[in-house]
Every structure is written in C-alpha cells, then in structure tokens.
Design a protein around this nucleic acid. Structure first.
Length: 857
RNA sequence: GGGCGGUUAGCUCAGUUGGCUAGAGCGCCUCGCUUACACCGAGGAGGUCGUUGGUUCAAGUCCAUCACCGCCCACCA
C-alpha cells in the first residue's frame, strides 16, 4: 500500500516528475489495479490497444494514441466500470522482414545466405528485444494496461485463431485461389494488397511509338513503360473514336518482337490521352488485363518475380526494367519507330514497406470474397451499431466498403502466419486448423503445406476477439466482447478498422466496438511528416525525461481530436509541465497551513459566510461538468482547457490569493474548501495526468486508497449570486492594479474608499486582493488611491492616460451598441434576451462613462 | 479525377446549435525575487478571423465562388 505522509515540508519547491512516476506505476501494478476481472458485477468496459508493429520504438503517434486510450480507461474505472485495457503487439510480417533484411544488408549478408532457420531465430530475438522496449515505453507513459493479458499475434493461441478464421472462411467458400493481376513487389517478391500501395509522383517520359499495321499503314501509341510492350498482345481504341474506326478488326505488328496484335475497340480507352490508341499488355497492367479479358487477348508474362525481364530469345531477357527500357527506346529510335518523347508527370505505385516500384503482374494468389462480409458491415452501420468521432469518417469508411473488391490475403514472405492448406502427393487439398497427418480425400500421409503466408492485416482483423480467447468461449470473451472503443489514425480505417468490423460480425455476430475515435496526426514543427529517416521525428521518451509523462499526455490529449493535423510545438508540452508545477505548489501552500491534519475534509461546507468559498465551489462544479462533458463527447481539449483554467486562473490566481491569510491562521473552513477543490481537481485531472495527481492526492489528509481507483467527482454546488459578486471583486481589483501600474505606483499599499453601494464581502476581498486599506474618506494629501462610485481613480491626475484610453474604448463600444439598438429590425426580430443583454451593456457603459466624467470634475 | 479537412495574434492552436466586446499557451514589451510556485506574479502591445459575393436584425460561425495547404480514395497508358 501507499506510504502515508502529508507534510508539505517534505515537498520540494519544484515538482520533479521523474522522482515520482516510476514509483507510482510500480505500486499501481503491484496492487493489481490494471487487472480486469471478468467475474466482476460492475458494468464492463473494454478496449484492445491497437498492437504496435514490432518494427522499432514507439513514436509520437503511439504516445498520443496511448494517452487517449489511457485517459478513457482511467475515466471509466473512476465512473464505476470494470475496465479491461488489453495490450499487445503485432508481428507485422512484411514490415519486420524488411527491418531484418536491412540489418542483414548492413552486415553484408542476406536472408537467403542465412537460411530460413537462422533467419527465424534472428526474427525471434528481434521480437523479444523490441517487444520489451515497446512495453517499457507504454509503462513510462503510465498506460494502465492489463499486462497479464499481453497478446502477440504470433502466440500459439493467436495463431490458432488466425487459422481457424481461414478455415471458416474456406468452408463458406469465400476463400479461393486464382491467377489474377496483382501488385507485385519485386523486392519483397510478394504480392501486396491495393491498400499497401503507396503512390508517388514521378517525372517520366511519355514515348510515342509507331506500330505497323498488316496490309499497310501504322498507328502510334503512347506509353511510359516501353519495356512492357514486349508483352503486348493487342491494341485498343475507343469505339467512338472516328480516327481509328476503320482499323478495328485489323492487326498490328509489335515492333522488336513481331507478334501479331489484334486491334480492338474498348470503352476503357480515353480518346483524349496520347494518341487515343492504347497498347494492351494484359500481363502487366490492370486496365489492360480487363480489356484483355473482354476481348479474349492472350496473356504474356514478360517479367520475372524479381522484376527482371522474362523475354527468352530477345536481347532484353534478364535485364532490369529501367535498363530494358533504355535499350528498347534506343532500338525503336534506330528503327525509326519512335515518333516523339514528351515529359510526363504521373503517379507510380510503390511498396509501402520497402518502397520498391510495384510491378503489376499475373500471379496465382489466395483471395477472400468480400460481398457478404461487406453487406453485413453496411447493415451494421445502417443500424447505427458503430459511431464515429468525428462523424465524417463514417463516410470515408462506407465509401471504401461500397467499392470493395476481393482481398488478396496471400503473401509470399518468409514471415507470417502460414496458410493452413496442405497438399498430398495425389494432388488433393486438405484445409485444417491443426496440421493433418493424412490427406482428407485419399489418406496419403505425404503432405506439404502451402508456402504462402497471410497478409498481416488478416490476423490483425481478428484482434478484438482473438485476444480474448476466440475461438474458445472464454470468460474474457463472454465478459468483454464486444469491446467499446477503438482509437486510431485515419490512415488505417480501411486497412484495419473496417476489417475488424467485418470479421467481428462474421465470427462473433456483433460489431467489435461501438465507437471509433480518429485522432489527428502529429507533424514535425515545419509541417513535414514526422519520420526517423527524414530526421524529423521526436522521441516521446526525450519529452518524458524533459517534461514528465504527465505533461506529454496532457499535451497529447489536448491536441488529439484537432480537426486538422497538428505541428509539434514543444513549448506546449513545456506549458503542461509548468501546469504540473503549479498544481504541486498550490497543494504545497494548502498543506502548509497549520492544523491541516485535523481539517474536516472532505465534506461539503455548510458555513457559507465567505463569498470566495461559495464562489470557488461554484466554479469547481462548473469545471467538473465541463471536464466530464469533454470526455463524453470525445473533445478532450475542452476537458483539459476547463481543468487548466479552473486550476490556474481561478483556484490559484484568485481563490488561494483570497484565502492566504485565512489559511495561515488555520481557518478550518478555508482549509476544507481548499481541500475540497484540490481533491476534486486532482480527480478529474487524473485521467489526463495520472502521476502528479496520484502523488498530490496521496498527500492530502487521510487519503488511504489510490486516487486511481476512487470515484469520478460530481460536485453540485452552484451559486450564481456568488459568481456575480465575485465578478465585481475581480473587476475592481483589476482596475486598481491597472491604475497602479499606469501611474507607476508601488504594487501594494495605499488607501481606498469604496462607494457605499459596494457590499461588505466584496469590499473585504478587494482590500485583500488589491493590497489596499479601506477608508471612509480619502485624505486630502498623500492618498494614492480613491474610488468614486465603486471605481478607482487617482485624485492627483496620475493615470489620466489610462483613463482617457478607457473612455475611448467605452465610447466606441457604446456607439456600436446604440447603433444596433436603434435598428427597428433588431428590436423586432432579435430574441428578447439578446436585446435585453445589449441594453444592459449600454447601461453599464454609460455608467462607466459617467464615473469617468465625475472624476474629471 | 472524386471526396474530406484546413486557412483566426509573431509561432502552435481553441472558438459547441450564428448574438464576439474574437480567446489560450508560447514569444514580445513594462514592472516586481510580496513567507505556494521566477517552472512565478502584476500590467500591456498585438487580429478588418485566406479572397470575392450572398443570406440575416446580426456571420469567424450559414451558402456560393476563387486561391493556396494537407489528407484519403481513384489502375488515363
């Protein structure tokens, strides 16, 4: 349990985050506060943390995401839920393979040289090392994750879930194997899905090439990839294109190769592009593939899996694409077939992991039919089962879903979940979760497993239930599925969120979560992408060691739901460290008051004789409401801002200043109110800044338990009258201070006569806060301050400039207000309360001007 | 090519259903080491809310247009 001590004398003057963070995390964890109990009779609340790729350390995006998740987890615990916050990490097959390959390259070797076994050992070691790093960083952040339920997508249990899903889909007849044109990464020697292609702008050349026509004449086509012409099997024109109508049905002859190419008419051809004639390469272009299918064109495979040319008998055989291109262009030029070249800018697909140029080619792959999965997901959305925050992202998701095509789930990588398909020597296929010992059909025991692995996203798609034990009906699964929230960056809405929804509906019969929260992306200060390779990354650990985890988290949650991406601004993180320090010192002040150990805390103050007490308690209620509303609406910045301004601008700047004397005298009511404020404030700040709040709360008198497992505050002391009166206090005090500075007077001292209309409570506070003595009448000489009708003036004439400025402001304001009030349209059409409000403002401005005039006379 | 978001103080950002006398943090200027805090306190300067129109008694807030910036989808070679 925690150590009990409440002596502020032990509190250093400055808050040191590093001195307390690790200790609290260890204590929370040791006391099992992160562990979820499926048998609890509390309502359940669950979130499965998006498994970070094990490709390296956590970056800013992870920190931001973890801060948001953890704030929700802590908030829900405090509001009475049994919370499961489940951590894990992802094997990220293609990404990890690339990382290891790069390491090997640096060591001057390759995975082929190393061999499968050694390569796998290497990968395992890497998973262990990086997995530990990631966990460590999440702990540093204060993420209250249930580490007893840590999951890894390569754990045996998880693997079984993945293969089970595959087998189920297969039984439905949704998984099939077929040759199709795919995005081929020649570097990874694997197919990748459409979503894993990253498009980049290239400055290329558009080549215009003359194709002779049998029986005389020729036509010119335009291409940026002349090397693919070696695999051309046709030429296409638009049926509506009058220029070429007479050529349809004729045959062109492929230069350099001599192959006969039927000229066909197809709507897919754009008449406005190039010459309006398209060379058709069904084996290496998706559009061409479809045209080829429609017209029965032959498919020629002109490329090897490593991206080199596969054109036996031609001089380009075995060359890389770019080299072949140069040679072909030269040869065409020599033969007079190159009509012209134009610079051309277009988008070229790259592998999003290794960045190699994608080569579309025909390949036999595993496919998953999406029709039914998609339709169920669409129906779930229509039924309002998933809410998106901000709402607009629902459309992003739905638009993508509606255009969904079959998913290429096979990968030809060394890493990943193996496809659970086995072939026997007789050519039969057995599909099974557990490796079969015999062929299902003929009993043959000589089985070989399909070499393909599954797309990483196939396994990630099962995350919300596979982590809970599916396909077994575990206690966790029953208690915590469906989960409640998924929070990610928008870039993986389609890759991941959509697929979880589809598999959840399929295997669990319900959506995997009810709310999807999309957070913004943090950019480098100059607006570029934050990236290690660009050198624009900022390490969250550096920030934590400079400012503390609380400051980083407070900043992260304050920007997470921005409508636009945010540029990283370190000064804002620093600002939240100062805020922690402010809280620290405010607590220190209150704890330093004599006799606090016996203060009646916590307890609602029944003795309301002090205006400032009623005022701050009313403000506290208002702030607590705002914090709660912000969390509930997923606008965390509203929560942070409300907490910050209450703590700093109201509690510290005004309340503590107002009650300093009372605290010093050991006034039990002031102590009680101050503790009440601190107690509540620390509670509603805890999800945002768990460490400093737990530390300070533990120092308040008689706090036996952890703040972390205490209840969410709902103070309900609202006193509009007190708020109004205190406004008056602040206005007069600010005026005194303003005049003082304008006149160059000392910051305290002097005498002030308040108008008789100012009540005693207000007068008392003004005197204290403005550091003046109240008198009945200003003395003729040596009186620095005087007041007329509740407003401050210097009788001497010092402060005239300020007064003049004030007059100007008031006059301008009054003129504007009167202009509006004089409009009959306004009087008739504006709501009465708006008119009334404006009239009151006009009155106030006139009174203020009158007072200024009185002072002049 | 389609869709979405953004353009508010020197910088980074807030501004809920139109009522704003437009805010915060940082930075800047002037004071002040007052027994919680100099990781501080007090005062102050600084914005015709990207453009041009429109709707309205009233527009940063709604509509249209244009201009930039960013993102997501999209297989015109």
């Amino acid at each position: 349990m925690k150590h009990a001590q409440t002596l502020n004398s032990e509190m250093p003057k400055a808050f040191d985050p590093l001195a307390i963070e690790a200790g609290w995390y260890a204590r929370w964890e040791a006391d099992g506060l992160f562990i979820a109990d499926p048998a609890s009779d509390q309502p359940k609340f669950a979130m499965c943390f998006p498994p970070p790729n094990i490709t390296g350390e956590l970056h800013m995006g992870h920190a931001l995401q973890a801060a948001v998740y953890d704030l929700i987890a802590r908030y829900k615990r405090m509001t009475g839920y049994e919370v499961l916050f489940l951590p894990g990490y992802d094997h990220a097959a293609i990404a990890t393979q690339n990382v290891i390959e790069k390491q090997l390259a640096r060591e001057g070797t390759t995975k082929e040289e190393l061999g499968r076994d050694h390569f796998n050992a290497r990968v395992d070691a890497w998973y262990e090392e990086v997995g530990a790093q990631i966990i460590n960083q999440l702990r540093l952040l204060g993420a209250s994750m249930d580490w007893t339920r840590l999951r890894f997508t390569m754990d045996a249990r998880y693997v079984r879930a993945v293969t089970t899903a595959f087998v189920e889909f297969y039984k439905h007849g949704w998984i099939y194997r077929a040759p199709r044109i795919v995005n081929w990464c020649p570097h990874d020697r694997s197919a990748i899905s459409d979503l894993e292609v990253e498009w980049r702008e290239h400055q290329d050349t558009l080549y215009f090439v003359k194709y002779p026509i049998e029986g005389g004449g020729d036509l010119t086509i335009a291409t940026v990839r002349p090397e693919t012409m070696l695999a051309d099997t046709g030429v296409a024109v638009n049926p509506a294109d009058g220029r070429y109508r007479n050529l349809v049905g004729k045959t062109a002859v492929l230069p350099l190769v001599g192959r006969k190419l039927p000229i066909v008419a197809d709507d897919a051809v754009e008449t406005a592009f190039g010459t309006g004639a398209l060379k058709v390469t069904p084996g290496h272009d998706p559009t061409d593939y479809e045209i080829g299918q429609r017209h029965g064109l032959e498919i020629v495979n002109g490329m090897n899996l490593d991206g080199s040319m596969n054109v036996p008998g031609l001089p380009y055989d075995g060359l890389g694409a770019l080299e072949a291109r140069a040679r072909i262009v030269a040869d065409l030029k020599e033969q007079g077939l190159l009509v012209r070249e134009e610079p051309y800018t277009h988008e070229v697909g790259h592998c999003d992991r290794c960045h190699a140029v994608i080569e579309p080619l025909i390949s036999e792959q595993w496919w998953l039919r999406m029709e039914e999965l998609r339709d169920h997901a669409l129906a779930a959305s229509e039924a309002g089962k998933v809410r998106w925050h901000p709402e607009r992202y629902e459309r992003t998701y739905l638009d993508w879903l509606r255009g969904l095509r079959d998913w290429n789930i096979g990968r030809q990588l060394w890493l990943g979940h193996r496809v659970p398909v086995f072939y026997c020597a007789n050519g039969h296929t057995t599909v099974s979760v557990e490796p079969p010992s015999n062929c299902d059909e003929c009993g043959n025991a000589e089985l070989t497993q399909d070499p393909d692995v599954l797309d990483t996203w196939f396994s990630s798609a099962l995350w919300p239930f596979a982590t809970l034990g599916w396909p077994d009906q575990t206690e966790d699964l029953k208690a915590f599925y469906p989960t409640d929230i998924n929070c990610t960056a928008r870039e993986i809405i389609n890759l991941w969120v959509s697929r979880m929804i589809m598999t959840g509906l399929e295997f669990m019969g319900d959506v995997p979560f009810s709310d999807v929260v999309i957070h913004c992306v943090v950019q480098a200060p100059d607006g570029r992408r934050m990236s290690k390779s660009l050198g624009t990354g900022v390490d969250p650990r550096d920030l934590m060691s400079k400012y503390g985890a609380d400051a980083l988290r407070a900043w992260a949650t304050s920007v997470a739901m921005s409508s636009q991406d945010v540029r990283f601004d370190e000064s804002r993180v620093e600002g939240y460290r100062r805020f922690c320090n402010k809280l620290w010192n405010a607590t220190r002040l209150v704890l330093g008051s004599p006799g606090v150990d016996s203060a009646d805390s916590p307890g609602i103050v029944e003795r309301h004789e002090h205006l400032e007490d009623r005022w701050i308690l009313s403000r506290l209620s208002y702030a607590a409401d705002a914090v709660t509303a912000g969390i509930e609406r997923f606008t965390f910045q509203d929560s942070i801002n409300a907490a910050y301004s209450f703590a700093w601008n109201e509690f510290c700047d005004w309340y503590l200043e107002a009650v300093k004397d009372r605290l010093r005298e050991g006034d039990a009511v002031a102590q009680d109110v101050a503790f009440q404020c601190l107690d509540t404030l620390l509670r509603f700040l805890h999800p945002f800044m768990p460490f400093v709040t737990e530390e300070l709360w533990s120092r308040l008198p008689r706090r036996e338990d952890y703040l972390m497992r205490n209840s969410w505050p709902e103070p309900q002391f609202v006193d509009p009258g007190a708020e109004e009166e205190f406004q008056e206090v602040m206005a007069i005090v600010e005026e005194v201070r303003g005049h003082r500075q304008a006149a160059g007077a000392p910051p305290r001292g002097g005498k002030l006569r308040l108008d008789g209309s100012v009540n005693h409570s207000i007068a008392r506070l003004v005197a204290r806060l403005a550091h003046v003595d109240l008198v009945d009448a200003p003395e003729a000489r040596g009186t620095p301050l005087a007041v007329v009708a509740g407003r401050v003036a210097f009788p001497s004439g010092a402060g005239d400039a300020r007064r003049e400025k004030e007059r100007k402001r008031l006059e301008d304001d009054l003129a504007r207000i009167e202009a509006r009030l004089e409009s009959s349209d306004f009087q008739e059409k504006a709501p009465p309360e708006v008119v009334k409000n404006l009239e009151e403002r006009a009155t106030a401005a006139r009174e203020a001007l009158n007072r200024l005039a009185d002072q002049d006379s």
